[in-house]
Design a protein around this nucleic acid. Sequence first.
DNA 1: CTAGAAGTGTTATGGCTCATAACAAACAGG
DNA 2: CCTGTTTGTTATGAGCCATAACACTTCTAG
Lengths: 239, 239
Amino acid sequence: MTEVAVVPTRRERTRAATVEEIKATARQLMREQSTTDVRFTDIARVMGMTPPALYRYFADRDELLTALIADAYTELGRAVATAREGREHDDVAGRWLAAATAYRDWARSEPQQFALILGLPVPGYVAPEDGPTHEAARDAMAQLADLFVRAAGLGRLGQPLLPEVSPEMAACAHEKHPELDGIVPPESFQAMIHAWATLHGITSLDAYGHFDWMGDEAREALFASTIRMAAMAAGIPTD
Amino acid sequence: MTEVAVVPTRRERTRAATVEEIKATARQLMREQSTTDVRFTDIARVMGMTPPALYRYFADRDELLTALIADAYTELGRAVATAREGREHDDVAGRWLAAATAYRDWARSEPQQFALILGLPVPGYVAPEDGPTHEAARDAMAQLADLFVRAAGLGRLGQPLLPEVSPEMAACAHEKHPELDGIVPPESFQAMIHAWATLHGITSLDAYGHFDWMGDEAREALFASTIRMAAMAAGIPTD
DNA sequence: CTAGAAGTGTTATGGCTCATAACAAACAGG
DNA sequence: CCTGTTTGTTATGAGCCATAACACTTCTAG
């Protein structure tokens, strides 16, 4: 346990680079072919290798898929967090808008990866024990929760449009997110999920092309109004 | 053009029955395997046939997929319409709740088919010219529009939470849905899509298992509150 | 410096699926 | 009963996943 390799060796670096190249190539092919179904043959061909060589880096397609899911989940989270951090700490309205827009933009630019983490589980893929699949949901919630905690701390978290909460939801909030106790009231916890659902709905429909029948300007305006409505309904200040 | 076969022959009937059995088997396998990726081999095995026989009924996998998508779109529409018709004509609140619940229940019971029409377009599948893929969106909109038209006719369509509408959205409403002119104002048209986005978001997250971390009662309560919030925000009476 | 070990790539192979071709059996109408 | 259509079969080829066996490169220890 002493003297662990703090500095990666040359081999470790080249191996890591190859792993990254494989994943990047897979993502590129996913974009080009508009599918989450990646063929080892194609990845290898693009990389100038033969298919079996990929098995030195990933045991099978599921393992590659798991890595891609983990990456996607991380990248979506990072995109949202970065956008959020770009606004002042006390600009709650701006932070909600920025985070929501980042969520939407990432989904539109990477619809396959978005589907990978928040769509129907991929053919044949089974999420590993406590895997990152559902963690995307948890993380999205955590980022939203941070927004609500901050708004509450600033005393700017308004009452949601729907102030009633069922005992089950209140209990769920207390059990699953005890860190919010005394800070974000149950009705705001519920409203938080409402806001996320609205954001996720408009994003999904948009990312999968179901608003293609309307013009770009109208679609942008629709998204903006949806986010604004969600904020109003959730008690997020809209300034 | 005279004397077209109004009565299907025996052959036509058996053929249609086989087509239905193929589709039903495909749907069954989709459910059992939790995937939209259906293998001709499996369908044939379940039906006691050999794989090439299926090509007598569908030219290739895409054609079967197209048929399944068309069916799914029809069935979702029918499920929602049936639920809606189960309520009195003037029970606007009940109709919204019933329609939304049917939408969610169908998605939960048939997540693969739901993903087929409203998720990421399937690997390799290209929607035929004016195909039914995006029609699911149009149909969902039409059913919602009917609800709003009826509410407006009864004078019970309230002002939405967000009364402002961008010129682009107003123009889009006028161009794409001229039948609503003078009946459903632009801000309510916009609110209608907001309501659908919220419904679709909560439904997608639920159907794909992203609320599995909460108990069944909490999930039900969450759905009910979300639908109620959406109604309030859209100006649908909640009684 | 030089084996031997570890790592990384290749070709060869088996099993599975999609899809077509060629052929056989069942069926409808004169 | 006979003939053409429909519907099924077996045979076959191409492509992909995955493994096995083998070859080359790179690191490391003596």
